[in-house]
Simulated scan of single mutants.
Amino acid sequence: MKITVDEEKCCGAGQCVLIAPEVFDQRDEDGIVVLLADTPPTERHAAVREAAGVCPAGAIHLDETA
């Protein structure tokens, strides 16, 4: 799995950080997503999928073939 984030779309809701804090963080100044691991270990994939699914801005994109 390969993750990309669109910082321009991110609204800073922080749901991704709550669901997968090992993979996502937020910038202190504006809450915009920070990707900590663009290729997370297999045991994190379910949480990453959930985080992408609940992102209100659709800023998290997953490539399952990578």
Rank of each mutant, 00 (worst) to 15 (best):
M1P: 09
A51C: 10
D30L: 03
F24V: 04
R49P: 02
V34F: 02
T42I: 13
R27V: 09
K2A: 08
A52G: 08
E43Y: 15
F24I: 01
Q26C: 03
V54T: 15
E7N: 10
V33C: 09
V33R: 01
V54I: 15
A52I: 07
K9E: 13
A47L: 15
D30E: 06
E29G: 02
I32Q: 13
T42A: 15
V5F: 05
E64F: 08
I60K: 06
H45F: 14
T65I: 03
G31D: 03
V54M: 05
A59G: 04
A66W: 03
D25G: 14
Q15K: 04
P41M: 05
T65M: 04
V54P: 00
V5I: 15
A13F: 13
G12M: 12
F24L: 01
V17E: 06
G14N: 10
H45N: 13
G58K: 08
E64V: 05
V34I: 15
A51G: 11
D63I: 06
D30F: 07
A37F: 00
A20I: 01
A46D: 14
A20D: 01
A52V: 10
L35Y: 06
L18V: 13
G14Y: 05
A47V: 03
V33H: 00
T39V: 14
I19C: 01
V17Q: 04
R49C: 03
A13Q: 09
V54L: 12
L18I: 08
P21I: 03
A46E: 15
E29W: 11
A59N: 07
D28F: 05
D25Q: 11
T42C: 00
V48A: 06
T4Q: 13
E43L: 10
G14Q: 05
A13Y: 11
D25W: 01
K9F: 02
P40T: 12
V23Y: 01
G31M: 06
E64I: 00
L35M: 08
Q26S: 13
I3R: 09
T39D: 14
I60M: 03
C16N: 02
A59L: 06
G53P: 04
H61T: 14
D63C: 04
P56T: 07
K9N: 02
C11G: 12
A47T: 03
P40C: 10
D63Y: 05
P21E: 02
I19P: 00
V17N: 02
E50F: 03
G31E: 08
G12P: 09
V48D: 09
R44Q: 15
G12A: 12
D38W: 02
V48C: 12
E7L: 11
C11N: 13
D25P: 01
K9H: 04
E8T: 13
I19F: 02
E50L: 15
V33D: 01
G58L: 07
G12F: 10
I3F: 04
A37R: 12
L18M: 14
H61L: 11
V34E: 13
I19N: 00
I3W: 05
T39L: 07
T39C: 07
L35C: 08
P21F: 02
A59K: 05
G12S: 10
P41A: 15
P40L: 12
F24E: 03
C11R: 11
L62M: 06
T4E: 14
V34N: 00
D6M: 11
E29V: 12
D30N: 15
G14S: 05
D6P: 08
E22V: 01
E7T: 15
V34M: 12
A20Y: 00
A57Y: 08
A37T: 13
